[in-house]
Design a protein around this nucleic acid. Structure first.
Lengths: 164, 164
DNA sequence: CTGTTGCGTTAGTGGTACTAACGATATACG
DNA sequence: CGTATATCGTTAGTACCACTAACGCAACAG
């Protein structure tokens, strides 16, 4: 092989200049690849990631209105409609008008919804395992902790200094 | 109920169930916020992130064809067209046919392109600083290293064990 | 009854990742 | 030479994701 070919990343002594120093780029690239891997895995069983998010939220917090689901999942209420349509079509959730406030729909996880959640959970756990393969247990914990802190910090830009 | 409203994340002793264990979700949320912050900052000076990526690549590796740029930046050649149009409109790059192979364009950084790069570099360094504010120097290094390893691992899914 | 607010829905925007095809040029082979 | 094939830049289009705007409806406060 000629030398000039595989320069890619390891320039070694030369300062990596601008590109590598940007956390946004590194996180962005990682996220894109993660999204792809997870999306493919979910797509293989006819699901999307928001399906998992909604099912998991229903399982953890119980039945809820769409507005509450939107708050808890960070899925915009406008996008939630299609997700719930999918889930209702699959029989994984029921969407019924709330008798006490007829503006609301009460979304409820069905039995087959719980099974669906377990299935998607397995799929994603598998993806997670593949993705984090190069890291040992401690390193995984560190990565989660560091990302979690950055994430929490980005979540509260103004005001809200602590939980006062 | 006691706390009622602000249950959000800190359930504490209860296992975080499914949602928090997914690296894809944590990385995805962080990436989304980063993209937003960086995108806003760049947008404030009329740029996009790919502008920075291309300018930085030209500065580091020198003039190149669009195909070479596409390889180095991971920007699809189809998307690169618009980016280079923007950059050429701003006078930051020149795009001239290659005399030795007239299929190619040679893309060259101009002087004002170097200045533009410095400007965007400042903007992004600022973003980077804001984003990583909660982490000290060592933690930043750790985060980069861990993400870098995951990222590198995702980059080489099949075969290619080493540079054999 | 009237204005306001919250709810679910529809529609649309803009950015990002990705594929397909095409005209033009370059290269390889017979 | 000629013809097949590959590469280059470009156009167009797909799909997903994050996000906004507006609308009809129900609830509620006055």
């Amino acid at each position: 092989m000629e030398t000039g070919d595989e320069t890619r990343f390891d320039r070694g002594d030369e300062t990596p200049e601008r590109l590598k120093g940007q956390l946004s780029r590194l996180v962005g690239m990682t996220a894109a690849q993660l999204r792809r891997v997870a999306g493919d895995a979910l797509g293989a069983v006819g699901a999307r990631k928001d399906h998992f998010v909604v099912l998991a939220t229903l399982a953890e917090f119980g039945s809820a209105s769409q507005a509450a689901l939107s708050d808890r999942t960070r899925i915009y209420k406008s996008d939630l409609v299609a997700v719930l349509n999918d889930l209702a079509d699959g029989g994984w959730v029921r969407r019924a008008p709330d008798p006490v406030d007829r503006r609301r729909n009460v979304v409820t996880l069905t039995d087959s919804g719980e099974r669906r959640l377990a299935e998607l959970d397995r799929v994603l756990a598998d993806v997670n395992e593949r993705v984090m393969a190069p890291l040992d247990h401690d390193e995984r914990r560190q990565l989660f902790a560091l990302l979690g802190r950055v994430n929490a910090h980005l979540d509260t830009p103004p005001g809200r200094p602590g939980h006062a």
